[in-house]
């Protein structure tokens, strides 16, 4: 089967719907006095997250004859937090994000992200606002909410916060993942396997579903909850087998943030992954003072897939990676 690779992977009709949705999203934030910002795609530092791979390049020019290493950003999070620390107030951004090693039905290595931050909000207030946006774009009822722990227990009958590695290994083997699970010593990998394959298909099928209070070991850049140290102020939004958004009650403590970055790099070293320079400018911004805030990143391409009833990400972007 031959395919015209010059031609767009999305139809022009879908791209018109896309343009309309982009307008709706911008209008939503302008009405709420959230300022639109733009931050660099290329940065001297990048994310240390052990499951994210950045593209890198080098700037050669005035002042950098030998080349300045730069990373394409996997999300605009760090730069947006620097704006918040400089008292920007509520901000949003629609930009391209870049993730190496990711391509498939729901992934393109270059994709469009909507990210916004709300000083003074906690993760639940931000879920309320996100619910309003999702209802507007997808014409759906209010989203459901369930804690990570409850969603896991409902689907698999095991408490993810108290289960041991051995229990999770046995559970994963029972569920048909013995090849992966029997020698997997990492609790989070086992949890992610079971959550992706067995819990996700049970949630957000009729209406969108927020899952909140992720395990503290998967906090990423969220605060650990004061009421229960086993969980973090991190939430995700799922709808129709798609992970749509990831949000945090943002970690504001500079020392703890630096510690998490160092932990990531230590893990990277142990596992033969490339070291990533810690974003010292983010740490400095946190030292200066990040206002208490909540923030969330939403995959716009996936939102548009749901709005237009398309099955693959390439159906809603003009040119997917194979046509780029």
């Amino acid at each position: 089967m031959s395919v015209n690779l010059w031609a767009p992977s999305a139809s022009i009709a879908t791209l018109k719907q896309r343009a309309h949705i982009m307008h709706t999203i911008r209008h939503f934030f302008y009405q709420r006095a959230v300022m639109e910002v733009e931050t660099p795609s290329l940065s001297q530092a990048s994310v240390t997250d052990v499951h994210l791979a950045s593209f890198s390049t080098s700037f050669v020019g005035p002042g950098h004859a030998k080349g300045l290493p730069l990373y394409l950003q996997t999300s605009p999070e760090f730069a947006m937090k620097r704006l918040l620390a400089a008292d920007s107030g509520a901000i949003f951004q629609i930009c391209k994000a870049f993730r190496n090693e990711e391509a498939g039905k729901h992934h393109n290595p270059e994709f469009t992200m909507l990210e916004w931050y709300r000083p003074g909000f906690d993760e639940f207030a931000l879920m309320d606002e996100m619910n309003a946006l999702i209802k507007l774009v997808l014409q759906v009822p209010d989203a459901e909410r369930v804690s990570y722990q409850q969603a896991f227990i409902n689907a698999l009958g095991v408490d993810p916060l108290t289960a041991s590695v051995e229990q999770l290994q046995a559970l994963a083997c029972e569920q048909g993942f013995a090849d992966i699970a029997q020698h997997e010593p990492d609790k989070d990998t086992l949890l992610q396997l079971l959550f992706c394959m067995k819990v996700e298909p049970t949630i957000g099928q009729q209406v969108p579903c927020f899952v909140y209070h992720f395990p503290a070991s998967q906090a990423a850049l969220a605060q650990i909850c004061a009421h229960d140290e086993r969980v973090a102020g991190r939430f995700e939004l799922y709808y129709k087998n798609m992970e749509l958004a990831n949000g945090f009650n943002e970690l504001t403590n500079a020392n703890e943030q630096a510690q998490r970055f160092n932990q990531d790099n230590a893990y990277r070293e142990q596992h033969g992954l490339a070291q990533v320079p810690m974003d010292k400018r983010l740490i400095q911004a946190l030292e200066h003072g990040l206002p208490a805030c909540a923030g969330v990143a939403l995959g716009i391409d996936r939102l548009i897939m749901l709005a237009t009833n398309k099955q693959q990400i390439k159906d809603v972007i003009a040119f997917d990676i194979h046509r780029a």
């Binding site: 499951h51 090693e101 990711e102 498939g104 990998t189 992706c196 998967q218 992970e243």
Partner: peptide
């Protein structure tokens, strides 16, 4: 098919 949570381990189904 690649299955990957935004934060976490990627799998291939």
């Amino acid at each position: 098919e690649m299955v990957k949570p935004g934060k976490g381990q990627a799998f291939n189904r």
